[in-house]
Design a binder for these strands. Structure first.
Length: 452
RNA sequence: GCCGGGAUAGGGUAGUGGUUAUCCUGAGGGACUGUGGAUCCCUCGAGCUGGGUUCGAAUCCCGGUCCCGGCCCCA
């Protein structure tokens, strides 16, 4: 019996790996064209990093362990927390904004299904320290550009927590998290019942999340107008904004967990959201305004967005992100950031990728001139990929192998060629061949491999 | 964690409670000591795992593992 892969993991054969590499490269190019720089963090971290961010309940879904020194460690389940941890400890005094991107494997202890594995790859970026609408528009346009670069069409939904949280402030504290949860889970009828029961139907919440696109924004403006005079229950005072980055708010609860009620202030600044929307339109991004997008966690503080794609079964989301406040959670200064993560594996399931790999040149030789042939192979490798027989095959068998491997060209080296100083370049598709000096062969092949 | 469907050579498959388990493909070699994918020949290679029922199990039953789809969850 052979040893199996652990559950939820995958092997990537050469074809898979090539395809993934090409897709990664395409998206990476977009990131770099926007001025982002790659960073990398450890595969494992202190478990605490993730429980601080997401609450103790995530331990169930994390690969965590004690090392031999008794430390509680965890394989990273996501990359935003590690990157922000790194930012706080290494980059806080660097010029802002910081534009960082990353690509790495992550691990979650979950039931595998379509588009969900225990080891998976995330690609994403964090734009740290910018002002909200500008950063938000940049992040969303960037995500859009990355998907387009691999030919994936996503359905982009953009929401704004400033508004939702302001409406929530009209609702009694003990009901807020249930309301939030029901919005997130799209439990419409339960939400309607609850709002009715607590006498909050008049706030317009149901109508708001039902509407999509411009009508949703119009409704938002209406709600904001109506809310102007209403009583506010327990809204934290805004931070002095003069010198602080726009829109950040104090975090009275300090380093408490995001799941334990530590809500960052999300001020109601609909005009900021409007600006994000205007910028996105300027960038030519196709998106839907959708206030139902609230994302689970408390550290999100402004615009949030999710991107969905077809063809993935139950796991349709391929991207999620927004503006958040995490630096302070990890012991740093208040810093507003915007970022997103792309589910690389899910994207790979739907990229319409043409296979365009170029097979290496095969250098076929007669066994009696192996030594000289090896020298020629070495020379040719300066220009093009060259495969040299290691099976001890005769010339005929080498050609057969080259054909089987899909070679487009074979260079044949034998005693006659060595004597003449001219080698045979054989075109395997047509079957034609000609006798040429080595520099000419190099020239021809180099031309053929141009761009690969 | 829950529900359903699966597991037969490297890949894809057929079949039956009972001789030596199909076929296709693949891989290696040969016919072919300087010219390829053809053809022919040879070789390699399999019933997930543990238990039970049975004279006999790859087949029937149970547990486990893994895969596929869905639920829960999804930072």
């Amino acid at each position: 019996m052979t040893i199996q892969r652990p559950r939820g993991t995958r092997d990537f054969l050469p074809e898979d790996t090539e395809k993934r590499g090409r897709a990664k490269k395409a998206m990476q190019d977009v990131l770099e064209r926007w001025g982002y720089r790659e960073v990398a963090t450890p595969t494992f971290e202190h478990l605490e990093l993730f429980t601080i961010k997401s609450g103790a309940s995530v331990i169930e879904e994390i690969y965590s362990f004690k090392d031999k020194g008794g430390r509680d460690l965890a394989l990273r389940p996501e990359l935003t927390a590690p990157v922000m941890r790194m930012y706080v400890s290494e980059l806080q005094n660097s010029p802002r904004p910081q534009r960082l991107w990353y690509f790495g494997n992550c691990f979650r202890y979950e039931r595998p299904q379509k588009g969900r594995f225990r080891e998976f790859w995330q690609m994403g970026c964090e734009l740290i320290g910018g002002s909200k609408p500008d950063s938000e528009a940049e992040a969303i346009a960037l995500a859009d550009g990355m998907l387009k670069s691999v030919g994936v069409v996503g359905d982009i939904h953009v929401g704004y927590l400033g508004l939702i949280r302001s409406i929530l402030s009209k609702i009694e504290v003990q009901h807020r998290s249930s309301v939030m949860r029901m919005i997130d889970k799209k439990e419409r009828s339960a939400l309607a019942t609850l709002l009715e029961d607590i006498g909050c139907s008049h706030l317009g919440l149901l109508e708001l999340i039902d509407l999509k696109g411009q009508p949703a924004l119009d409704k938002a403006a209406e709600i904001v107008r109506d809310m102007g005079a209403g009583p506010e229950l327990d809204v934290p005072a805004d931070a002095p904004v003069a010198s602080a980055p726009a829109g950040t708010a104090p975090s009275p609860a300090g380093r408490g967990s995001a799941r334990q009620g530590r809500a960052v202030g999300a001020e109601l600044r609909l005009e900021e959201f409007q600006e994000t929307v205007d910028l996105l339109r300027a960038y030519g991004v196709n998106f839907t305004i959708d206030f139902e997008i609230v994302r689970g966690l408390e550290y999100y503080s402004g615009t949030v967005f999710e991107i969905y794609a077809e063809g993935l079964g139950a796991q349709r989301q391929i991207c999620g992100g927004g503006t958040y406040e995490l630096a302070s959670l990890f012991g740093g200064k208040e810093t507003s950031s915007t970022g997103f993560g792309l589910g690389f594996d899910r994207i790979m399931e739907i990229v319409p990728m043409e296979r365009s790999r170029r097979s290496p040149v095969f250098l076929a030789f007669t066994p009696d001139v192996k030594i000289q042939a090896a020298k020629i192979a070495k020379e040719l490798r300066k220009s093009v990929p060259v495969v040299f027989d290691v099976m001890g095959r005769g010339l005929g068998a080498q050609l057969k192998a080259a054909a089987g491997a899909g070679a487009e060209f074979v260079v044949i080296v034998g005693k006659d060629e060595l004597d003449a100083g001219k080698f045979t370049l054989r075109d395997m598709s047509g079957g034609g061949q000609e006798s040429l000096a080595l520099p000419e062969i190099e020239e021809r092949l180099k031309e053929h491999y141009q761009g690969f």
